[in-house]
Nucleic acid binder design. Structure first.
Lengths: 222, 222
DNA sequence: CAACCCATTACGGGTTTCCGTAAGGAAATA
DNA sequence: TATTTCCTTACGGAAACCCGTAATGGGTTG
């Protein structure tokens, strides 16, 4: 079994259960952080000391509070970790169940397993840890059942997200066009942006921009 | 200390910790349900058997899955519980931190304490249980610091929420007007609705409807 | 009953979205 | 080089919005 595991989870009510699972699995060294920043620090320190972690279990969303932080989400933490310790195995344990976001975790951040917090997630997490140890890949908790070949949601790219984000901030087409020109994002004509919004509306079956942003919020795209 | 406590919480990773707190507090009878429906059933059953619960600790949001349920949220559960057992003490333990929603829990549903899930929430929960037992009222976890006299968010009433909900579903002004006429909600002229939306835009500093709905989503109003 | 108040509704013009069509321009193909 | 194709941008009219102002109509007051 793993020898040294780091848990990044802000909610104490949850981390208690996660640490318990690791204790059950006889992991000798279990560390726990409540902030992403602390997680990165610990991983860096462990590398310097030549006693690296061999597994990271991380949440995605972390509450913001009085403390200023560099990394504000699990995605950012994993991205930073990949820079310093690409071989570290990573399990994400989060409430998120939108296939769009989960897919990008596997494809862009190279995580080994994704377990969604639910009614029976602790046993799922335990299994995932064991399977990750046996070098299995793309492990998904059983309540999530989308296929990785499903192209639909991959097609929504960062360009679309940018548009949705600006729309959600009250920008009108012209503002978005100017913003894109400044950031030299193409295409940036009002017409092209309009067309792209149209595609999104068709895809999400939205009646208008207001409806579209409401849906995008529900999907966690913005 | 309380003799019989019911915990309504879908995430197993969290309920483990909550039950542990109750065990620490030497509560002799601790029951746990993962669905709101089951919670109501248990409370009814306990009344019939003349062995009622004296505390309910409930989450607000419950994941939906294959199982069909009558009650889909903690609010609905508490509303139903108030019908059958108004004297039962109630603590809400949830991630929600929007003052608007929390206030209505105290004012409309008569809960005794609200604890927001966070980095040190287990100790807060423990304290809240003890204070509730001593008949204290309006207990709030210390990371939440809004005053009950703050009128700002109370002024947004259900009429506004209705408008926002319909907007978020892609309705245009005329549709909303018709909808309101059918439900005999007044005022229902497109002009009046428009004016009300205008007020909301000023209040929330929104540039347009799209922006407004994005903000409303962030505030958890829809 | 008339005068007034207030909330609701109606109206109108400017702006933005919405949606179809078409023009321009670059890369690929023949 | 000419043609095709695809992507980007431009244009224009209808619909929905945005926002100020005016009309309506029920309730209260003198």
């Amino acid at each position: 079994m793993f020898k040294k595991v780091l848990v990044a989870e802000d909610l104490d009510s949850i981390s208690i259960a996660v640490v318990q699972v690791l204790e059950d699995l006889k992991v000798p060294t279990i560390h726990h952080v409540k902030y992403c920043d602390d997680g990165l620090l610990k991983i860096k320190k462990a590398l310097i000391d030549k006693e690296p972690y061999d597994l990271l279990i991380s949440d995605l969303s972390f509450k913001s509070d009085y403390r200023k932080t560099e990394l504000s989400s699990g995605e950012e933490l994993i991205e930073a970790v990949n820079e310093v310790d690409p071989k570290l195995k990573k399990i994400v344990f989060s409430i998120e169940d939108k296939s769009y976001r989960i897919k990008s975790l596997f494809n862009d951040l190279g995580i080994n397993a994704y377990i969604s917090k639910g009614r029976n997630s602790i046993i799922e997490l335990r299994k995932a840890i064991e399977r990750t140890y046996r070098n299995e890949e793309k492990i998904l908790s059983s309540d999530l059942s989308f296929s990785f070949s499903d192209k639909a949601l991959i097609e929504i790219e960062s360009y679309d997200i940018s548009i949705l984000k600006l729309l959600a901030q009250g920008y009108i087409l012209e503002n978005i066009s100017n913003e894109f020109k400044q950031a030299s994002i193409t295409p940036n004509g009002t017409s092209s942006i309009e067309k792209r919004i149209n595609k999104l509306k068709i895809y999400f079956k939205a009646n208008n921009n207001v409806h579209l942003i409401a849906i995008a919020k529900d999907f966690g795209l913005v």
